[in-house]
Design a protein around this nucleic acid. Structure first.
Lengths: 159, 159
DNA sequence: TGTTTACCCATGTTATCCCATAAGAACCCA
DNA sequence: TGGGTTCTTATGGGATAACATGGGTAAACA
């Protein structure tokens, strides 16, 4: 089972090539001919996975009983918006200029493991996003503790 | 399995010719003599597929017990309205002027992969449609991770 | 005979392959 | 443990092939 872990930052050269981290290539296992990337629906980043995983996705789409408009949406955004990027002999991919520009990638490229998939970010935007997520988590934690405290009050008072 | 992925924009020349993306030609596999196109039922675009896929479609239509009016409709629009466009020696098709005009194609032609089929768009109209689909996806809260999670269930259970 | 369609060749651009180099990590052997 | 060595990995550049595209010519059609 391919598992993408940790995060790496590699440089984009003049030709638009960037090395895919060796551990990610190893995680691809059997279908190590390249990767598939597409624009994330939620973030200013690219989602990436193996070709096998995309086929799996397409199989599960057929089995799930999705509304036709949703199915339509996915086919347009994922399959139409995705690109199959093969490795060169050094394990690099060439990131199409339009795709890189659309997520604000210029020089450095951050690969972020997400177990079965991974993401490709502009390192600076990734740092900002992580900071935001962190503070959001903190904020949620605070409200959670309040809720727990409130729940405890009921527990103590009630029984 | 032939899979049409990603999207490409090629130019329509004075003679009405346009190159079919090399990866699409490769995806056609055995029946690589040309493609079949017909007007999309939903969009201002053309649907395209291999000849083999159209035969598959006709077979699956016969097996299903569709109402006669639906069957009639499909036969008229798909099979009646379809055109078989052979490749020239460079892998181009000549897009009939009437067909191109009917979907607003003048200079540039966008080929959009949709797994088993593909679509042919005016690039500008495609961009508008994509933006709409993307925001609709966000509004419906369709997250890929949910779909991928569902796909992973198949991975763990099935294979 | 005029018009259109299909075939053939030429060209510029882009992407792919191949080799070289440098830095880092792991390894081995004292 | 320390120093040296070998291997993996990332990165850079040049040569080559594939691709998209344009135009010209001959055959098919009306």
């Amino acid at each position: 089972m391919p598992v993408f872990l940790s995060h790496f930052v590699n440089r984009l050269d003049k030709k638009g090539r960037v090395s895919v981290p060796a551990s990610f290539r190893a995680a691809l296992g059997s279908d190590a001919s390249g990767i598939v990337v597409f624009k994330s629906l939620q973030h200013e980043a690219l989602d990436g996975c193996s070709i096998g995983h995309l086929e799996l996705l397409s199989q599960s789409l057929e089995k799930q009983d999705l509304p036709s408009d949703v199915y339509e949406l996915i086919e347009t955004t994922i399959f139409g918006g995705s690109m199959q990027l093969p490795f060169d002999s050094e394990g690099r991919i060439t990131l199409p200029a339009a795709l890189a520009a659309s997520v604000g990638i210029a020089d450095d490229v951050a690969f972020v493991g997400r177990r079965k998939t991974f993401q490709i970010w502009n390192p600076k935007k990734l740092a900002a996003h992580e900071a935001a997520a962190r503070s959001a988590a903190r904020a949620k934690d605070i409200s959670l503790s309040k809720i727990i405290a409130a729940a405890s009050r009921f527990e103590n008072g009630g029984v």
